Simulated assay, not measured.
Amino acid sequence: MTNREEKQAWLDGLQVGDKVYIRTRHTKSITAIENITKTRRISTKNGHRFNADGSQYGRGSSWDFADIDPVTDEILLEFKMRKIISKIDEVNWNKVSFGNLTKIAEILDLKV
């Protein structure tokens, strides 16, 4: 978000079921809004809670924080790339045919 007013307008428009991006000190996730109270306190499906202004509800310290933001195309691309990389890491390369390995090497511009 470029400024506080834009973020507040986005927060004010959130509805149950909307996807949001949650960033903590150790994790990044995309989750959905589970509940919004009459006072606009926001709860997400992964257990985070935020005040109407987007600040973390019950925030204890700077070591234990969570930020809520919109899911952008850039964030979606990052998550899709992570998923692909994770799947590639799981491949048993000994079971891939020589022909397919050669194609992969060409795509990756590997000199073999």
Rank of each mutant, 00 (worst) to 15 (best):
I42A: 04
R25Q: 12
N35W: 05
V16C: 07
R40K: 15
D12L: 08
T31Q: 01
N46T: 15
R41G: 00
L11I: 10
L11G: 01
N46P: 08
I33M: 01
H48E: 14
Q15K: 15
I36Y: 00
L11E: 03
Y57K: 11
K19G: 04
F50Y: 09
R59H: 10
I30G: 03
S43L: 14
A32S: 15
A32H: 13
E34L: 12
L14M: 08
I36M: 01
S43M: 13
T44F: 03
Y21P: 06
N51R: 13
G58T: 11
D18W: 02
T31G: 00
A52N: 10
G17M: 07
R25N: 13
K45H: 10
H48A: 06
A9W: 06
S55W: 08
Y57C: 05
T37I: 06
H48D: 12
F50I: 01
K45Y: 06
E34Y: 11
F50T: 01
I33H: 00
R49I: 11
G54P: 04
N35P: 00
N35H: 12
K19M: 09
Q56W: 02
S43G: 09
F50E: 00
G17V: 09
S55P: 06
V20K: 02
N51G: 07
G13D: 11
R59F: 03
T44S: 07
K19H: 12
S55D: 13
K28T: 14
S43I: 10
R25V: 12
R25G: 10
K19S: 12
Q56P: 01
T37E: 03
N35V: 03
N46K: 12
T27I: 07
H48M: 12
S43P: 03
G47C: 04
I30E: 05
R41T: 14
Q15P: 01
F50W: 04
R25T: 12
S43T: 15
V16D: 04
Y57I: 03
I22E: 00
I42Q: 04
R25M: 10
K28E: 15
K28L: 14
A32Q: 15
T24N: 07
G13M: 04
Q15W: 02
V20I: 10
I36G: 00
Y57V: 02
D18K: 03
E34I: 02
G17R: 08
K28V: 13
A9N: 14
G47H: 04
K28P: 02
H26E: 14
G58F: 06
T31E: 02
F50V: 02
T24R: 04
T24V: 08
G13H: 07
N51M: 13
T44I: 06
T37W: 01
S29Y: 05
A9M: 11
Q15C: 09
H48W: 14
D12T: 07
T31N: 02
G47S: 08
Y21R: 12
N35E: 13
S29E: 14
K19Q: 13
A32G: 13
N51A: 09
R23Q: 15
A52Y: 03
R25D: 09
G13W: 01
L11V: 10
H26V: 10
